[in-house]
Computed example of a mutant assay.
Amino acid sequence: MHWNRLATSLALAASGAEALLRFSCSQLVVERLDPLVNPGSAPSPHLHQIVGGNAFNITMDPKTPPPSQATCTTCTFADDFSNYWTAVLYFKARNGSYHKVPQKPNSGFEQANSGMTIYYIPYIGNTKSTVTAFKPGFRMLVGNHASRTKEETSQYRQLTYTCLETIMTRTGETLDMPNKPCKVGIMANVRFPTCWDGKNLDSPDHKSHIAYPATGTFENNGPCPATHPVKIPQLFFEVIWDTSKFNDKSLWPTDGSQPFVWSQGDATGFGNHGDYVFGWKDDALQKAMDTNCNINCPQLKTQTIAAGNKCSRAVQVNEKVDGWLDAIPGMSPGMEGMSK
């Protein structure tokens, strides 16, 4: 489950033994909207950071694919108008005030404007397998914003954190938030299930139409369960939070606990979660998966990170989310760890 993803990926890609897309998606907007879980609600209960196409909205009708609505994308693959989003991380000071943790770009994407690194992987190692790319209208989420125990979050298998000693650290993943200062920051890893029922583009809980392999993991080519027989690409996000700005232990709680809180009020880290609305244009993603692209993909249209940084969308929920705050947006003071 825990593997040196970037170093391994680059080495295998160079040898032709692995296929993957790895690319940057800069931040589009940070606000309290969630068209997947809380469609029509403005504001939604908690704050998200969103990347991808600028068709992201309060409500996103699955019958109206993002490519028909978006005019630009923050992603470096220019035909990817999908939206990807996660919660936002805050630092809680000893006096009870909060400050949004800034982000830093991943290795190789130094110009990126916050955001995430996105991966789509059809297979690992030398065992090639055919995967079915997501279809128009497809959407899903992984994790549970209300999880507060290791037992609750372990059902998702691969929602983890990496305490970065350097920007290239890819070992020592944990299910819970690191409880020591991390020299370069904390990377949140969000991996989605890789099996689909082949019928439903969504489900009421946005999870039941997808599943993990029946045995093993995606990394060792575990077979899909009979209920979800269709293999889909491994989608996962890497998000680097620059917690180094808060590494002075004199700022941390006097009881020795870690000081970082997800924007849904989660101080445990077990509420790590991610959302996805598919929005690749035409058959671009299937083409990339079929041709086993290695990191770069000549078959796909690309744009520079600088061009992606220019893609924008007006904020629709106006509230203060940066600087020192008495409470996380949407939360009452002192509610961390309690929000369900």
Rank of each mutant, 00 (worst) to 15 (best):
A11W: 09
A14V: 12
R22L: 09
V29E: 05
R32Y: 11
R32V: 02
P35D: 08
N38Y: 12
A42D: 01
P62D: 10
P65M: 02
S68C: 08
N83A: 11
H99D: 06
K100H: 14
Q111K: 13
T117N: 05
I121M: 12
N126A: 14
S129G: 10
T130R: 10
F134P: 02
G137Q: 02
L141I: 14
T153I: 10
S154H: 00
Q155P: 09
T160N: 04
Y161M: 06
I167N: 08
M168H: 15
M177W: 09
G185K: 02
A188W: 01
A188I: 01
N189E: 11
C195Y: 04
D202G: 07
A211T: 03
A211I: 01
T215K: 07
P225K: 02
A226T: 13
K231R: 15
I240F: 14
D248P: 13
W252A: 03
P259M: 04
V261L: 00
S263H: 04
Q264P: 08
V277L: 13
F278H: 06
G279N: 01
Q286H: 10
N294G: 11
V315A: 10
N318W: 00
D322T: 15
D322P: 11
G323A: 13
L325E: 07
M331Q: 13
E336Y: 05
